[in-house]
């Protein structure tokens, strides 16, 4: 049986169940790289171009690890657009080429182009091309794709219940993870999924908040229509898919009475983040905090900010309920 390697980074968090089910249906064995660790990060930072954002650098490290795992193919999709008139960050458009230029002697790369910006036509062609690479006829490919979509939707439904995407993938694979209990403080956390749900990149922001007694709300838990409705209130449409979702989620959270505050996790080198974070900060009326992440591993700064933010919300809440001890 042939093996296909999938790097555990970037859109892995959004589409792994779709990809895994697809290849599995066609009789391939899927091999993942390990969850991000220090070695992957070090390798990635060395191999990648300096201007890339941190998650892209880390992705290089994942590909590099897979190279040594004896896979027949490496799956590096070229994500241009996943919906009409909206785009993924341009770095993703060139990603397979950047990786090929940076890492030598790769196994065969499956670099199908996903561009749904002008409808479905090009996508059908790409699926056919994928069939040629894998030596499978088009009917089988279509069947596998339809099966994978079903699996993907079931994964999305799991995430909706209150899991992070990372946890939802595990639950989808059969692991048992109990949902976090409800606690008095509710915070909405936003950011690109590939930074937020990667425990190394985000320094486990979500786990840290939960450890401080916070119930975390994510954009995956909100109704899609609600997010889109809020996003459409901006004077100009945001043409980045993820950026639009984040603005919409932030505005939706701003209106939900059970969310006390919003944290936006941005990557230092991310172009869209620098704009979207600013838009959100200006629009949102609830307590808001922007956390900027990069390669540093010193967690002190993150912990201080998270603690102070929680303290502030907890004390405001207690004041509003008419009870305030100084010690929080």
């Amino acid at each position: 049986m042939k093996k296909v390697g999938i790097p555990q980074g970037l859109f892995y968090y959004y589409y792994y169940p779709l990809w895994e089910a697809f290849f599995r249906f066609l009789g391939l064995v899927v091999v993942r790289s390990s969850p991000t660790n220090k070695k992957i990060v070090d390798d990635g930072v060395t191999l990648a171009v300096d201007e890339a954002c941190f998650p892209i650098k880390v992705y290089y490290g994942h590909v590099n690890e897979l190279k040594g795992k004896g896979v027949d193919y490496i799956f590096l999709p070229r994500l241009v657009s996943i919906e009409p008139k909206s785009y993924i960050c341009p770095k993703f458009m060139g990603l397979p080429d950047m990786i090929r230029a940076g890492i030598k002697d790769l196994p065969e790369v499956i670099d199908i182009t996903v561009d749904l910006s002008r409808g479905d036509k090009g996508w059908q062609k790409e699926l056919a091309r994928l069939g040629k690479i894998l030596n499978v006829n088009y009917r089988q490919i279509k069947k596998a794709y339809n099966y994978a979509l079903e699996e993907y939707f079931s994964y999305r439904m799991i995430a909706r219940q209150g899991y992070t995407r990372d946890e939802a993938i595990k639950v989808w694979q059969g692991e048992e993870i109990s949902l976090p209990l409800d606690t008095p403080l509710h915070i909405g956390v936003l950011g690109h999924g590939y930074s937020l749900y990667d425990d190394f990149i985000s320094m486990s922001v979500i786990k840290k908040l939960r450890g401080m007694g916070v119930k975390v709300y994510l954009s995956e838990h909100l109704p899609t229509e609600g997010i889109e409705k809020e996003a459409s209130t901006l004077p100009k449409r945001v043409f980045w898919t993820l950026g639009r979702k984040m603005v919409g989620s932030a505005l939706y959270m701003d209106k939900s009475p059970d969310i006390d505050g919003i944290i936006y996790v941005a990557c230092f080198g991310c172009g869209p983040d620098s704009l979207i974070g600013e838009v959100i900060e200006r629009k949102v009326k609830k307590p808001f905090m922007l956390l900027t992440l990069d390669e540093h591993t010193g967690e002190g700064g993150i912990i201080t900010r998270l603690e102070a933010f929680c303290d502030m919300l907890a004390r405001r809440k207690k004041r509003d309920e008419g009870y305030l001890p100084c010690y929080g």
């Binding site: 900027t292 201080t304 102070a308 502030m312």
Partner: peptide, 13 residues
């Protein structure tokens, strides 16, 4: 405001 932190910010990077 009234002895309660209502907003704060720290230098970023």
């Amino acid at each position: 405001e009234n002895g309660i932190v209502t907003d704060f910010a720290m230098n970023t990077v």
